[in-house]
Design a protein around this nucleic acid. Sequence first.
DNA 1: AACCCATCTGACCATTTGGTCAAGTTTTAT
DNA 2: ATAAAACTTGACCAAATGGTCAGATGGGTT
Lengths: 211, 211
Amino acid sequence: MATTEVEKPQRKTRIQRANEQKILEAALEVFSQHGFRGSTIDQISEEAGMSKPNLLYYFKSKQDIHETLLSRLLDSWLDPMRELSADGDPLEEILNYVRRKIEMARDYPRESRLFANEIIQGAPRIKPILGGEINDLLNSKAAIIANWMEEGKLKKVDPKHLIFSIWATTQHYSDFEEQVRVVLGRGIDDPAEFENTKAYLENMFTSMLKV
Amino acid sequence: MATTEVEKPQRKTRIQRANEQKILEAALEVFSQHGFRGSTIDQISEEAGMSKPNLLYYFKSKQDIHETLLSRLLDSWLDPMRELSADGDPLEEILNYVRRKIEMARDYPRESRLFANEIIQGAPRIKPILGGEINDLLNSKAAIIANWMEEGKLKKVDPKHLIFSIWATTQHYSDFEEQVRVVLGRGIDDPAEFENTKAYLENMFTSMLKV
DNA sequence: AACCCATCTGACCATTTGGTCAAGTTTTAT
DNA sequence: ATAAAACTTGACCAAATGGTCAGATGGGTT
């Protein structure tokens, strides 16, 4: 019997790397604005500046692009939470997390909207990741926070709800950017407004948590 | 010259009323889950239990259904904010607003997601309403809150950011329900979890605002 | 009973969309 | 230089989708 055909983990060409990058960048732009079902391969290929068949030469389907994009971005998306360390000063650790999340809302609004779109629609394509990696990470950080509270280093509140409210308040500025912009006349991308927002949120979480 | 043909504001039939209701209910279900572009007339007509042509007998297009739905729901959606009165006790007025918003997140999650979907995608179909009615209402309430702070009845924070954080934290439980459910094992529809959430948010806004 | 108008639907149409294919062009390794 | 491999695309296809239409059905009024 002949050797079964196995994937060849061929190293990637220069062109391959460049085009996958262009496609994912284009896909982020399109998916984050219209959601999965609202986006078309044509939109993405146009945004990427290549023909549709060529795009499908690199990714075998729309699903494939979407999944690849989500999994590539997930890591950096969770980075700020990973940095939260049991060793630092409790309040400062949490405020740092808040700051990092506001910075991400400013610097990576499309990534935020990509995940928001996915979750708001019931997370049909990433529920396993939600229940796995994200949940584990959140649990471990919630435990650290609970510990701090147990030790009297922070006022006691529900750690998971605390994390929710950090997510909600920070991501609000990217996910609902349009609304924010209408109300404030400017967005989180405006330096002065960024400082405003940061000060507001730092104060909010400080007054809730400081012993 | 004959009289120009004018719309006849014919009073609505019993059947008409019932069917429009069924269609809008079905549309809420579908649009809130998939967004405008991700929803199809077929899905809506099936959900409403009628044929597609019949649905289009009552609403002339997908756009039409969507617009009607948004404008019908907007009023009740804004009600909690309208209730915020300059006459009451400042902190209690704000906490009441928070409570009403959590209740809405529990009782009307589809409505919340409908608006969230629309705004996250750049609010292409309701920007005028955002810039008009909602903005006016928010400005007037922000002024009331600013007044209270000026009079020393509340700690000073940016009133508009305060409103944002109320929206963000409460709507989080309906808009990102799937995520909440994965992390907590239950949603805001669970009575115990509802109480938990309410207590957490009341405490958060109290500690930030109480003088 | 007979009429009228509202209600309803199967069949249909044009466009959009996800995806394929065969045939060309460019890169790369020798 | 040249052949193999990698890359690219116009043309195409089937299914899905928004919407139309002609005609059937039904309910209410006289």
